[in-house]
Design a protein around this nucleic acid. Structure first.
Lengths: 163, 163
DNA sequence: ATTCTTGCAAAGCCTTTGCAACTGC
DNA sequence: GCAGTTGCAAAGGCTTTGCAAGAAT
């Protein structure tokens, strides 16, 4: 995955999450499983779905249960630590906190997600909202197709097929 | 819904669908239920999900079964008559054939979808794909937020609450 | 102590599928 | 008549929930 610039943050993800929990109308508790999840998720920068997270964490002997993972992921999204991306077939999560605003190219062949930044997009979104008197909440933007690697693989295969 | 320019098409949706069916590796059949669905769907221009379509068609005494609706919707998407839009909570379909390329603003409050066209978006997409040597397949772009109507309603409510 | 979180099993929701009866071509 | 379509019931995949036991504050 090509890396985008990190963003300066003054709190660790865990601190930010605790702050979020504490600031709820009904203060919520910070549990061991939640701590493990936050630490695990922010120890690597990648896109993952609920199942992958559960499998990987179990493989590393963390104690995680499916319902709790779903419940915690929802809180992490609310807290602004994660962003949820709906891919149609799959729903994946990625870091939101401490990471630059960006969008994705999604490869239909290999499933990889390539991140990109485009300042023109923000401008465009602002203009459209202005036009329609629409109060912007957010956006989802995914460009689908075939990534460079898969394209190369295809080309090669096609060449071989012709022989 | 604000209307975008229609596009010139030489075939009716039904004709186009029959052509698609006939051109399959294993030619497929055009049935009464499929005809009803195509006619019903293209008799109005709106966004709908599978359930809404079934309910409405049943209400008008068309005979439709859930599995067949799903099977036919898939074919209509393949045939290029419909476009499938994943809204996270809901999956909706809209006319693709005979209708200008566009994207959507989605109101979180009332669920309405406002269509818009932005030529700058195509340019941007082309540039990003160029950069990444990515072969474009398509894109999904949804701007979320609160539409003008809902915003007005909220304003009014807020004013009333203050009295 | 109180109140929130957990984990199991079960339910929900939307979508797909196996299969026998049916129907377009 | 053959091959594809239909509709029922059932299964699937992912996500959520009721509730009793357990943990955080």
């Amino acid at each position: 995955m090509n890396m985008l610039p990190a963003v300066e943050v003054s709190q660790t993800p865990e601190e930010k999450f605790r702050e979020y929990l504490a600031s709820r109308p009904k203060p919520q508790r910070f549990t061991n499983q939640q701590r493990d999840m936050v630490q695990y998720i922010f120890s690597k920068h990648n896109h993952f779905d609920a199942d992958e997270l559960i499998d990987e964490m179990k493989r590393e002997n963390f104690q995680v249960s499916r319902p709790t993972v779903y419940r915690t992921l929802k809180k992490l999204v609310d807290a602004g630590l994660l962003r949820k991306i709906n891919l149609g077939k799959r729903t994946v999560y990625e870091h939101d906190y401490g990471y630059a605003q960006h969008d994705h190219l999604y490869c239909d062949q290999c499933g990889s997600m390539i991140e990109f930044q485009e300042s023109r997009l923000d401008e465009l979104i602002r203009d459209v909202c202005q036009d329609q008197q629409f109060q912007l909440g957010g956006h989802s933007f995914i460009i689908r197709g075939t990534c460079a690697d898969c394209n190369r693989a295809r080309m090669t295969k096609r060449r071989l097929d012709l022989v």
